[in-house]
Each structure stands twice: as structure tokens, then as C-alpha cells.
């Protein structure tokens, strides 16, 4: 299995990672369906995390991630390596998530959403509840929850294209090139979306930024 190699791949950079991707895709396209299990192991966390960040809802993220992997299984035979495999996956995630967000927006156009409305993460808890609490004081835990909540509220106010770019860059650590490929835009557009998104976030999170330290 690739569990060991994944760590190696991550440690030794993108090139190695891409090689693993290419070999897995080749195996799958040659008829070895077990390669898909390795692809799943390699990407399940990133796909789920990205979906979760974009949608802000655990169940929706789970549903979307499943949808993405089913699509992947179906379409993988037709993958022609014109783009990098991982950015191809991210593109599927982002496109599906944006479609859902657009659908929600249409459905909720006439509803008023309170700024206090929490995005639901798990059983009605905020994302802050998932913070590791063992090394934190109750104050720090509460503080972390509040800051995470404010960040997600502010992100939800951004236009979808800026939100996707910021999440991919600042929260998931993608390179600009990866973002550009996944969103199918050029590098300049990626940077301008991120810059504009950050400015907007800065405005919404002005008070948080003055006091906050990394969570």
C-alpha cells in the first residue's frame, strides 16, 4: 500500500507527489481498481477538508466528498493528464461546492440570515468545539471557538470566487499555480482575488485581528 509512500511524497515535495499520482492513475487505467483505494487514501482528507471549508457544513461536506470520489471513479479512465491529477480533483471539489453554494443562494435569496447564525459543523456545534482542548484553558477554548466562528462568518460574506481562492491559499496551503489550475484562471487573477478577499476579510475581522493570535 501507499500509506508509507504518501508520507515520503509529502515530505519530498510536489514532484514526488505527482509521480505517485501518475503511477496510481496509470495503474487504475490499466484495470487495477485497487489503485483507486490508494488514491482515496491519499486524497480523502484534503477533499473532505476543502469541501468542509467551502460549504461550512459537515454533512454537506461528507455528501459532496462522496460525490466527488464517485465522479472520480467514473471519470478517471478518461483522465488525459493535460492538468495535474491533484488539481483536477480540487477542480471537481470546487466546482461542485460552488454549484451547491449557488443553489443555496438561490433558495435562500428571500431569507434574512442573521450574522449570529452559526455555520453548523457537527451536531450543532461550532468548529471551535473541535479544537483540541487538552492544552487549553477554558478561556482559550472559548476564545478559539469565538474567533473561528467569526472567521467563518466573515468568509461566508465573501464572493464565492474570492472565498475559494482564500480558503485554498491561506487555509489549505495550496500554491498559486495549483489554485490557478483548479479554478481554471490565470495566476494574476488568483493573486488579485486573494488580495481583494483579504482586504474584505480585514474589514470584517478588524477587531479580531487586533487581538487575535493564531488559534
Amino acid at each position: 500500500m501507499y500509506g508509507h509512500e504518501i508520507t515520503l511524497a509529502e515530505n519530498s515535495g510536489n514532484a514526488k507527489h505527482d509521480d505517485v499520482d501518475i503511477s496510481l492513475v496509470a495503474r487504475f487505467q490499466a484495470g487495477d481498481t485497487t489503485a483507486f483505494e490508494d488514491i482515496f487514501t491519499l486524497y480523502k482528507d484534503t477533499v473532505f477538508r476543502l469541501a468542509f471549508r467551502l460549504l461550512g457544513d459537515r454533512e454537506e461536506a461528507l455528501d459532496l466528498s462522496q460525490d466527488v470520489f464517485l465522479t472520480l471513479y467514473k471519470e478517471l479512465r478518461r483522465f488525459r493528464r493535460s492538468s495535474r491529477f491533484k488539481t483536477w480533483i480540487y477542480r471537481i471539489v470546487v466546482n461542485r461546492a460552488l454549484n451547491r453554494l449557488r443553489l443555496w443562494k438561490r433558495q435562500r435569496r428571500h431569507q434574512t440570515i442573521s450574522l449570529d447564525a452559526l455555520p453548523k459543523y457537527h451536531k450543532g456545534e461550532s468548529i471551535g468545539a473541535s479544537l483540541p482542548a487538552a492544552d487549553r484553558s477554558p478561556y482559550e477554548t472559548l476564545y478559539g471557538q469565538d474567533v473561528a466562528r467569526r472567521i467563518h462568518q466573515a468568509l461566508a460574506l465573501l464572493p464565492m470566487d474570492q472565498r475559494a481562492a482564500i480558503i485554498m491559499r491561506d487555509m489549505e496551503g495550496f500554491s498559486y499555480e495549483e489554485i490557478a489550475e483548479a479554478l481554471e484562471i490565470n495566476l494574476g487573477t488568483v493573486k488579485s482575488r486573494i488580495a481583494r478577499g483579504r482586504e474584505e476579510l480585514r474589514r470584517h475581522l478588524h477587531d479580531v485581528l487586533r487581538t487575535a493570535c493564531p488559534l
Binding site: 480523502k44 473532505f48 466528498s65 473541535s130 480585514r202 487575535a212 493564531p214
Partner: peptide
Amino acid sequence: NRRLSDLLGSVPSMSPPPYFERLVMRGI
């Protein structure tokens, strides 16, 4: 901007639940 970027990077996310793999493989 730097502080914002650091702060965003430190927001924790979630891992998929343990049954996620079974869910996907069964779907396939």
C-alpha cells in the same frame, strides 16, 4: 494581511469520519 493569513491558516478543520471510506467504496 500577514496576521490574517496566519490566523486563517491556524483555523482547525475536521477529518472525515471513520465510516467515510466504507461509504464511498460501497457507493462505488
